[in-house]
Write a protein that binds this DNA or RNA. Structure first.
Length: 286
DNA sequence: AGCATTACCCGCACGC
DNA sequence: TGCGTGCGGGTAATGC
């Protein structure tokens, strides 16, 4: 489920809770259940089990597409990759507490990790494709230290952004997808942002003018804020409740009219990723 | 040689 | 049934 808006939305759910589930802040961890060992990047399962229980959750933050659960001693990090999701379950404690039991959870066969808190509240990591990863570390910088700037951070000025862009000869789309360049954009929001900014996904980054860089950064921020307001997008069989998919400009709109100019959106492949753009108003400049 | 960029590939579910 | 596709990114391979 995860690009910046979806991870931000999930962070909010975990902090404040939802209609059907309580928030997690201030709760004490009791026990860990790892059902797919490769979901855990580090430390070992034994060390995780030895360190995390007894710790109290202080706060929940997001950095790029990472979700950070700050406990009093350690930080538990999740990366949802392609299909991961985190849900709080306070109603089926007796079933979820025992991973060997015939769980009747809707996505039970894809549960990879469960963290039991006090009062029968569980944080459940669901991940059909098994690409998601979990870390427990003293210093979260060990995991997220290499990320590029946050697109919504006001400290990222248009001038800085243009400088960063012009330092690379790469195509703009793969560059925006590179998390060490900018943290949080994925395939959807890159296509959306480039369409709004009227930039071709194959535009070489070093040829982007200061004026275009400003338009692009503003477009990225506009799209991300809109997506967050809609609680992210729900795509394919992975449904989380957000409805930004109903407001896509380019992504998965092949053959439909561009919202800028009415020409038909086309699908090409750029950097091994399906890419949706308008061949009329998103043109390469030199 | 050494950095920047590109191609593979990892489970699984779904639609054509 | 078979094949292409996919809200991602680590790593090997290649390019400059």
């Amino acid at each position: 489920m995860p690009e910046l808006p979806e991870v931000e939305t999930i962070a909010g759910y975990l902090r404040q809770g939802t209609a059907g589930s309580p928030g997690l802040i201030g709760r004490k961890a009791i026990k860990v259940h790892l059902l797919w060992s490769r979901s855990l990047e580090r430390p070992s399962e034994g060390e995780l089990q030895a360190r995390l229980p007894g710790q109290v959750l202080q706060s929940i933050t997001r950095r790029g597409k990472f979700l950070l659960l700050h406990f009093n001693l350690d930080t538990l990090l999740f990366h949802l990759r392609m299909s991961g999701d985190l849900v709080v379950d306070g109603n089926q404690a007796n079933l979820l507490t025992d991973p060997q039991s015939p769980i009747t959870h809707p996505q039970s066969s894809h549960i990879r990790f469960i963290l039991n808190f006090e009062d029968g509240i569980n944080l459940v990591f669901v991940d059909p494709r098994k690409f998601g990863r979990i870390w427990l570390v003293r210093d979260p910088g060990e995991v997220v230290g290499g990320l590029g700037p946050e697109p919504l951070d006001p400290d990222l000025t248009t001038g800085k952004f243009c400088q960063l862009l012009n330092a690379h000869r790469r195509l703009i789309k793969p560059l925006l997808l590179d998390q060490t360049f900018l943290a949080g954009l994925g395939n959807i929001y890159t296509d959306e942002s480039l369409n709004l900014a009227r930039l071709h996904p194959c535009q070489p980054a070093h040829l982007i003018s200061p004026a275009q860089a400003e338009v692009l950064l503003n477009a990225i921020r506009t799209i991300l804020r809109q997506a967050i307001n809609h609680r992210g997008a729900s795509i394919d069989w992975v449904y989380r409740g957000g409805n930004f998919q109903n407001h896509f400009r380019a992504y998965q709109r092949t053959g439909k009219p561009c919202l800028n100019c009415g020409s038909l959106i086309e699908r090409i492949v750029v950097g091994q990723r399906g890419t949706h753009y308008c061949p009329n108003c998103q043109v390469i400049v030199s």
